[in-house]
Amino acid sequence: MEVSLSVNGKEVSEDVEPRTLLVDFLRNDLGMTGTHIGCETSQCGACVVHVDGRSIKSCTLLAVQAEGAEVTTIEGLAAGDELHPMQAAFREEHGLQCGFCTPGMIMSAVDLLKNNTDPTTNEIRDWLEGNMCRCTGYHNIVKSIKSVAELE
């Protein structure tokens, strides 16, 4: 099936099988490997991207279901060499260790601040319910997100 969508502002059109998950489409068909596959059962959040402005788990959406959608991935955040404030904050506050969960964490965090510009620590932790990190203990992730909220 033909699927046409916008990924990070660029129109793409590819022939895919209906069973192709959006995350596999991004990684294998478009070669954009920033979005990770962790559990592939919509629990870990490594695959979070934005579809039409909302964070979703791209392992639990078919590529064909994104027909006509605007998709933003971790690759779409930075402006050239300049990191997105959330990316910069994760680096500054040590919001990552191995980095596997980071793309999903950042995409999820960016979505949070879109709707809640000044979240409490509890609200941040609640929001990260669907993003798992096995290194940091979350503390510095929460700190990173908080620091961006304070900037804005």
């Binding site: 919509s42 959040g45 979703i56 788990k57 639990t60 999820s108 319910e129 669907g130």
Partner: peptide, 9 residues
Amino acid sequence: IGDPQVRNR
């Protein structure tokens, strides 16, 4: 229900 991404879908 679930988490924010599940609720978004």
